[in-house]
Design a protein around this nucleic acid. Structure first.
Lengths: 247, 247
DNA sequence: GCGTTGGCTTGATCCATGTCAACCGGAACT
DNA sequence: AGTTCCGGTTGACATGGATCAAGCCAACGC
C-alpha cells in the first residue's frame, strides 16, 4: 500500500517510483491487462533497474542473453552490424517498449541497443518471466502479443524499405513517431528528434543527404517546420496523402 | 505404439502419417526438444490438417486469427497489401516452418499466406497451444525461440533491403534458400525455385527485370546455372564473396 | 571572443535500378 | 500443329537517390 510507506526515506521512495504497479507506462508495457495481484507478482520479478547514459550500450550483439528490458524513460536505437562495416538501424524504441526480444532465439543478443538520451530501464530476467507467465495466463498472452506486434512492425518496415520512395519513407516515419508520442501523452504535432539524420537514413535505407533534402522539401510544401531536431507537423493529411498515392 | 496399430485400415494409417511424434520434420518444427510423452500431448492438440492447393490462400489479411500453422509439406509465401495497390512479399516458408505468428498481436491476420505449390499444413489452435505451453516448459521456451527467430530473420531482411545492392540481395537470397534446403536434407547446390521472378523481386525490393538480369550476371560469372526455375549453385564462395565485400 | 567540432543543408554530378518495350520459349488448350 | 498465355530475358533509355564537395550553424572549450 503506497500510503503506508514512509515517503521521507529516499530508498523507499525509489521503490515506489519504480514498481510496475505504480508505473504510468503500465498500460503500454508488459503489465497491460494484469490484475493488481498479478501486477505485484510481476513487480517481484523486476529487481534490476539501470540508468543508461546517452551514447552508452544497454547490450551489444554477441553478448549472452538473459533478460529483456522495458524502457522506463528515454529513447534507444537498435542496430545490426555486418563484418564489412555496413550497419542498419533496425528500430527506435521509446518509454514503455521492450528491448532484447531478438536474444531469445539464440540466447545471445543479435543487435546493439544504444541510448539516444539518458534513459532508465527495467531488466526482466527472462527465465523468471517464462515461469511467471506459466502461472499468469494474462501475462503469457500479453507477452505473446508483444512479440507478435514486433513481427508485424518489422513487416511494416520491410514494406517501407521494399516499396516506398524516399519521401514516402520519411513521411511514414514522422507519422509513426507522432502517433507513438501521442500514445504517451505528448504532442502529436511537435517533438524533438532524438536521432541524427544519419540514423534516420540508416533506418529508412537512405543516405543522410536524402533525409535532409526530404525534410527541406516537406518544409517548402508547408507540411512541417523543421529546425534541426525540432519538428512541428503542420499538415498531417498532407503527409498521409504523400504516402497513399502511388506516384 | 505404432506397431500395434492395424496398418491395413486407411484411416489409421493417416493418423500415423500425420502425428507430430511420427513427423520427420519434428526437429525443425514446434516439437523440437520435447520428450516422447510431451510429444503425444502436442499430438492431441493438432486435430486439423489441411491440404492447400497451389495458388490458394491458407489465410488472408483481416481474417480472425485462431490458429498458427505448421507446414508439413509444400511451400508458401506471405505478403502484405497496401490500399494503394502496392504489395510486398514478407517471406517464403517451407516445410517445418510456422505461419501465422503475425496474427497473435491483433487477433487478426495481418498478411496473406498463399501456397506456391500443393501443400499440407497442421493447424495449431493458439489458445490450446498457450495452455499446453503453460504446462510444458520446453514447449513454451521453444515457441518463444521460434517467435524470436522470426524477429531476427526480419532484421536480416531489413538489413538486406536497407544496405545491399541488387546482386548482393539476390546472392543472400540464394544462399539462404540453399541453407534451408540443406537443413531439410535436400541438395544445397541444386533446387527448383517455387516462386516467380516477380515474387523474388517483391521480397528483395527489386523489379523482376533486375532479378532476371542479376541471375544472368551470376550465370555469366559462373556462380550458378539458371534455367528458368531450376538453379544449380556452382560456386558458393563466389556468392558469399559478393555479399561480404563492400563494393 | 574565437576556433573547433559535429550535425545539417545544399549543389553538381553519377550510376544503379526502374521503366518501357520487344521478343522468346514452354505449357496448356483447341 | 497452331494459338494463347504466362513467365522470363534482354535492350534502350529515364530517373531517384547516391556520391562528392562545399559551406552553414549551434554548442562547446579555451
Amino acid at each position: 500500500m503506497p500510503s503506508t510507506i514512509p515517503l521521507n526515506q529516499e530508498i523507499t521512495l525509489t521503490v515506489i517510483k519504480t514498481a510496475c504497479s505504480n508505473c504510468n507506462l503500465r498500460e503500454l508495457c508488459l503489465p497491460f491487462g494484469l490484475s493488481l495481484e498479478e501486477l505485484e507478482r510481476l513487480d517481484d520479478l523486476i529487481s534490476t533497474r539501470r540508468r543508461i547514459k546517452r551514447g552508452d550500450h544497454l547490450y551489444r550483439a554477441g553478448e549472452a542473453f538473459d533478460s529483456i528490458y522495458a524502457i522506463r524513460s528515454g529513447f534507444f536505437k537498435t542496430d545490426v552490424l555486418l563484418e564489412d562495416g555496413r550497419d542498419q538501424v533496425t528500430g527506435f524504441q521509446m518509454a514503455g517498449e521492450l528491448l532484447g526480444l531478438d536474444g531469445i532465439s539464440t540466447e545471445h543478443h543479435t543487435c546493439n541497443a544504444i541510448a539516444l538520451e539518458d534513459s532508465e530501464i527495467c531488466a526482466i530476467p527472462f527465465n523468471r518471466l517464462e515461469s511467471l507467465s506459466r502461472e499468469i495466463h494474462n501475462l503469457q498472452h500479453h507477452f505473446h502479443k508483444v512479440m507478435s506486434r514486433e513481427i508485424v512492425r518489422d513487416h511494416g518496415v520491410m514494406m517501407l524499405l521494399g516499396t516506398m520512395r524516399a519521401e514516402e519513407r520519411l513521411a511514414a516515419f514522422l507519422l509513426n513517431l507522432s502517433q507513438r508520442f501521442t500514445a504517451r501523452g505528448f504532442s502529436h504535432a511537435e517533438f524533438y528528434l532524438r536521432m541524427t539524420r544519419e540514423e534516420i537514413g540508416s533506418y529508412l535505407g537512405l543516405k543522410l543527404e536524402t533525409v535532409s533534402r526530404a525534410f527541406s522539401k516537406f518544409q517548402e510544401e508547408g507540411y512541417i517546420a523543421v529546425q534541426q531536431k525540432h519538428i512541428r507537423i503542420l499538415n498531417v493529411n498532407g503527409l498521409k496523402a504523400l504516402m497513399n498515392h502511388r506516384a
